[in-house]
């Protein structure tokens, strides 16, 4: 079942400006943890606010659980959409205790039911025992978990999270990525979160959509996005990559530094752009191309090696116990690559 469907959404804030969202279409399945990734100003927060009903689209339709919430002459106000929204700064009510924050959206339940619901979700986020604290008495991570419990407690059709990790320091961020993923999975919720940090997306989401200038570039599983990015922009966004130009001839690509085998069916003599991840450049004596080592960067588990292949700079990653020195002449081959569209 489709939890959220957006059809041809357009949204512009000011007449002179470009569209924040430009004919945007996306569908999100039930139970997905879906990351929306893009640079700041790409329209990702607009997307969340439109789904939540905090903004009105200029045109297009939005369905939540197959019910239209926004469309021509239809507009359901936020409180009627059954969505949960975790704000970037959490927006906890400073004058209410943790339990009252969580209970805020449950005022239509009988009090006994409300209490058990609050207990359930505080337990889920691991805040049992903190019921009577005020938000300012909590750490950053606890505040975020309170916000999460508050939004999950109404058992929303879709949970929306706006930059959920941007307010946390590096160490806490890693921990919360893991926790949030577990909490959402255990709650069985469908979640959409926006982020500009691809590491957030790769480690938390089970599906990722990349947005640029209000348009959807690619929507796929994390592995797919990483291995087969649709264009140069996406390939560079998710980790280091080598972008190489080549010409297709007779089931191979000829590049400035050598020939790469190619099994795709392409037009003869067409220009092709490929993306090669550093770990797919294999440095070994059996390689069919040669290069000179220009520099090395020790990164703990791996060494990033900068190669000069006939004047073209390439980055390869090798095991950190390899013994490689600047100035070495090495052989290499390309294990895997993906054809991408130029930017």
């Amino acid at each position: 079942m489709i939890a959220l469907q957006l059809n041809n959404i357009n949204k512009k804030y000011q007449a002179k400006e470009k569209n924040a969202l430009d004919n945007f279409t996306l569908s999100i399945g039930n139970g997905e943890i879906h990351a929306i990734v893009g640079e700041s100003g790409c329209g990702k927060t607009t997307l969340l606010r439109l789904v939540a009903g905090l903004e009105v689209p200029d045109s297009g339709e939005i369905f939540i659980n197959e019910k239209m919430v926004s469309g021509k002459s239809t507009f359901l106000s936020p409180e009627k959409r059954n969505i949960g929204f975790v704000f970037q700064d959490y927006a906890l009510f400073p004058h209410l205790k943790v339990k009252d924050n969580v209970a805020f959206g449950l005022n239509n339940l009988a009090s006994s039911e409300r209490e058990s619901r609050v207990k359930k979700y505080l337990d889920l986020v691991g805040l049992t025992g903190y019921e009577n604290r005020y938000p300012h008495e909590l750490s950053g991570g606890q505040q975020q978990r309170t916000a999460l419990a508050r939004s999950l407690a109404i058992e929303p059709a879709v949970l929306l999270l706006d930059e959920p990790f941007s307010n946390l320091d590096e160490i806490l961020k890693k921990q919360m990525r893991h926790e949030i993923k577990q909490i959402i999975t255990r709650a069985g919720a469908t979640a959409i979160f926006v982020t500009h940090d691809t590491n957030d997306a790769l480690s938390v989401a089970n599906k990722i959509s990349v947005i640029r200038k209000g348009q959807l570039l690619q929507s796929a599983m994390p592995e797919e996005i990483y291995r087969n990015p649709v264009n140069e922009y996406v390939s560079k966004m998710f980790g280091l990559t080598n972008t190489i130009k080549g010409v297709y001839k007779n089931r191979s690509l000829s590049t400035s530094f050598g020939i790469i085998q190619c099994n795709e069916n392409l037009n003869e003599n067409s220009e092709v752009l490929i993306s090669v991840r550093p770990e797919n450049i294999d440095i070994s004596s059996s390689g069919n191309m040669s290069a000179r080592v220009k520099g090395t960067v020790f990164a703990g588990n791996i060494i990033e090696v900068e190669l000069d292949a006939s004047g073209l700079n390439l980055i390869a990653s090798i095991d950190s116990f390899s013994n490689i020195k600047i100035g070495d002449e090495v052989k290499f081959s390309i294990r895997k690559y993906s054809i991408i569209k130029p930017d």
Binding site: F85, A91, F104, G105
Partner: peptide, 25 residues
């Protein structure tokens, strides 16, 4: 600003949001 919108996403009407959150704050 989120204090106006957070209550709405929790199912509160603008009046309840105003009385329970904005006005006390």
């Amino acid at each position: 600003k989120n204090m106006d919108e957070a209550p709405r996403t929790l199912g509160a009407s603008s009046i309840r949001s105003f009385l329970k959150v904005s006005a006390p704050l």
